[in-house]
Design a protein around this nucleic acid. Sequence first.
DNA 1: AGAGACGGTTCATATAATGAACCCTAGGTA
DNA 2: TACCTAGGGTTCATTATATGAACCGTCTCT
Lengths: 261, 261
Amino acid sequence: MGTITKALNLLNFFSPGRAEIGLTEFRTLSGQDKATVHRHLIELAANGFLEQNPETRGYRLGPAILRLAAVRERLFPARSIVAPLVEALASELGELVHVSLREGTHMSPLFHHDALIHGTRVYFDEAELLPLHATASGLAMLAFGPEHLLPEVLKSSLSASTEFTITDPGTLEEVVAGVREDGIAFVDQGFEAHVSSFAAPLFADQPEAVGTIAVAAPTMRMTDDLKRKIKSALPRTAHVVTEQLGGVVPVDLRRIWSDAA
Amino acid sequence: MGTITKALNLLNFFSPGRAEIGLTEFRTLSGQDKATVHRHLIELAANGFLEQNPETRGYRLGPAILRLAAVRERLFPARSIVAPLVEALASELGELVHVSLREGTHMSPLFHHDALIHGTRVYFDEAELLPLHATASGLAMLAFGPEHLLPEVLKSSLSASTEFTITDPGTLEEVVAGVREDGIAFVDQGFEAHVSSFAAPLFADQPEAVGTIAVAAPTMRMTDDLKRKIKSALPRTAHVVTEQLGGVVPVDLRRIWSDAA
DNA sequence: AGAGACGGTTCATATAATGAACCCTAGGTA
DNA sequence: TACCTAGGGTTCATTATATGAACCGTCTCT
């Protein structure tokens, strides 16, 4: 693992529950030597990716990230394009909708919206990376994303998030093949207990999917009626999002979607 | 310069005018060897900080940045706190208002808003880092930020952005002392020709300023009347922003501000 | 067919990253 | 007061890692 990766990985330990991380905590989280971690932290801080709380001496994410995010959003305003469409679909279905982009072998949340019309709701963390083999978004990406992805994931260890997570490579391969046929992915409690979700791929300037749009609902609310609504609405929205992103839905997938509708 | 810094610096070459950068362009921009740059790009991309356009083979900013920005914003929602206050001040004054955070020896734009009620307007680039010695924001930071900052900047080379930029260390020191007394910084065309601006410091969880709020207007619109309005409104808003950020305006500065009001 | 531009790769070399041991300070406690 | 602990931070010999000159492959323009 290169030095750059080691350093950047430190940034991934931050989450809504972990706003500030100290040197020793970083050491245990990363498993690296204290001196190494410290030098990396210093260098990240010098570049504005971290900043140090002078009171506690702990580190938190720095302003450089916001600046770069503003640039990225200006260049490729995925978030702002996606937001109204996600909100519309969430209202229509009355459930949580989220869009994620692929980041290596994970899905990285871009935007989410919850209609908040129900008492119970799905908790969704925009800071958390989603594994490909355990989520509907991940399966949709494996089915319609870059070709190298599936073999890569198949030979990696498939860790179980719940008792329903697919951990067998053979099963995963079959399920992904099924997603390719259906044009939509469904996962029942594969990532979080009592949560089921559907996902469809999104395309931008590449023939492979760059992201996914997904609907997640408590399993007990995922009735046949809701499933039917999702199966109809999700591909429709995925199509619109793809167009807005300047992408094209591959012809065969478009046929699957229109046949199903 | 460490490897991490070299790699992270590559990210800074992106700007609204430069959405996608190729290997050779990176090489010339950074002055590094092509192989080095390439390996850095690969590693940044593997971590989601860049992504490669498969068509052009050019690189652009990746989704990891958005994800981290979401985390940072959740932990320390500066942008969302600041936005309405900036917008209100911009409307009140009819000019461009921006909030920036310190990032090393530069100011990093966080949010800006332009009332857009005039024909001519100040161009403001949220992607661009602002030098400390040439901008009102920078002077306010030098005056009220961490102590180590001023000596550091004084001994660095003060590059001229315009013919009005302060490039003499002695002059800079005097001007900063003046800002400390006034509680507000004023710079006339120090960074961009025909643009004048005022800035006041913002405080969060530290006794030193962490950011600044500034008003920028075309020099020809910066009349005594407008100046008077800014001198009254800017500290008031800075105070509110500071409070919203959970910070405290140092007592002596608070006295200066209230005496002036 | 040749020239130039660009992306990408190789491998010996040199440089920069590493980590065990150490220091320092603050807070707690006997 | 003296002693302890935990955490942050630093040192320096060692080693692993980053580096870059030269190379390759491909595309495009002439």
